[in-house]
């Protein structure tokens, strides 16, 4: 394709938008190194907020909760979503309107309504049967529910991009059902499995609203802790937590960039 050329004004606008996008993050990072407790004036470089972070049990507990929640929910969502994606693919010739509606429901439902529905339901079940007391378990259940469709769609997309004859080829080459899964299906969709896990993990780790409504007193995650800290009054260690989270995202972005460029190079001639 011929290279298009944009007017230089576009470049100026581009950098302004980047400034707009990164300024709030930069402010968080900058003030995380502030020597004094102020969000308005920077009074010198200090690591005191990071130091205080690591002695703050509530933060450490919240981080632990976030990790447990994100890990366990994304593993469950990955398993369920992989089967779902595979089922959608193998039966894509059928009319499955009801199933499509079910899959899109968690995606389109407003977070607030999602969280409140689950919260009221769990509270009700708990008062009636004594099960599903709001806490880590209920959060995991809700997180799996909203991660599942994203995983399934990723897996489905990967299957659609595979040559359908590969399934026949694996059967033709003496692979029974279990060997087919182990030596063909799982290796062939591995990129989507990895992407699906990380997507689910990120969605879970980032989520605030649904966690907020389905959590119990002991299961606050990092976003819930930050939310509470902001509501209580601005505290500079939020900047420190925020900076660490931003750093994690930047690392993830870098990894995904390397991964994208590499797989582009690798599959470049295929597509």
């Amino acid at each position: 394709m011929r290279q298009r050329r944009a007017h230089p004004a576009f470049a100026v606008f581009w950098w302004l938008v980047l400034l707009f996008l990164y300024l709030p993050l930069a402010v968080v990072v900058l003030f995380s190194f502030n020597a004094i407790n102020s969000a308005a004036t920077f009074a010198g470089f200090s690591l005191r907020w990071y130091v205080s972070l690591f002695s703050n049990d509530a933060v450490i507990h919240a981080f632990y909760n976030s990790m447990v929640l994100a890990l366990s929910s994304s593993v469950i969502a990955l398993v369920l979503g992989t089967f779902l994606g595979y089922g959608l693919y193998r039966h894509r010739g059928r009319r499955m309107g009801w199933l499509i509606v079910l899959i899109y429901l968690p995606i389109v439902m407003p977070d607030v309504v999602f969280g409140i529905s689950d919260m009221t339901f769990f509270v009700r079940l708990n008062s009636m049967f004594g099960i599903l007391k709001p806490g880590m378990l209920t959060m995991i259940i809700s997180h799996v529910t909203f991660e599942l469709p994203f995983v399934a769609l990723l897996i489905y997309a990967r299957f659609v991009n595979l040559d359908a004859a590969l399934f026949d080829a694996s059967k033709d080459l003496y692979a029974g059902p279990i060997k087919r899964a182990l030596y063909f299906v799982i290796p062939a969709i591995k990129p989507a499995l990895v992407a699906g896990f990380f997507l689910a993990f990120t969605l879970s780790f980032d989520d605030f609203v649904i966690s907020f409504f389905t959590s119990g007193p002991e299961s606050a995650t990092l976003p819930i802790y930050i939310w509470g800290a902001i509501r209580r009054g601005i505290s500079p260690d939020i900047n420190a937590i925020g900076s660490l989270m931003i750093a994690a995202v930047l690392v993830a972005a870098l990894i995904s960039l390397i991964f994208t460029l590499k797989s582009r190079k690798r599959e470049g001639n295929l597509n």
Binding site: L80, F83, L84, G87, H91, L102, M109
Partner: peptide
């Protein structure tokens, strides 16, 4: 049967933990 065991668990999960709660709400 294949359709059921692949999509069933997820469909049941979403029904149980989102559709029912929404209907309750």
């Amino acid at each position: 049967l294949h359709l059921l065991w692949t999509t069933g668990p997820s469909a049941a999960w979403i029904t149980l933990f989102l559709v029912l709660p929404s209907l309750y709400l």
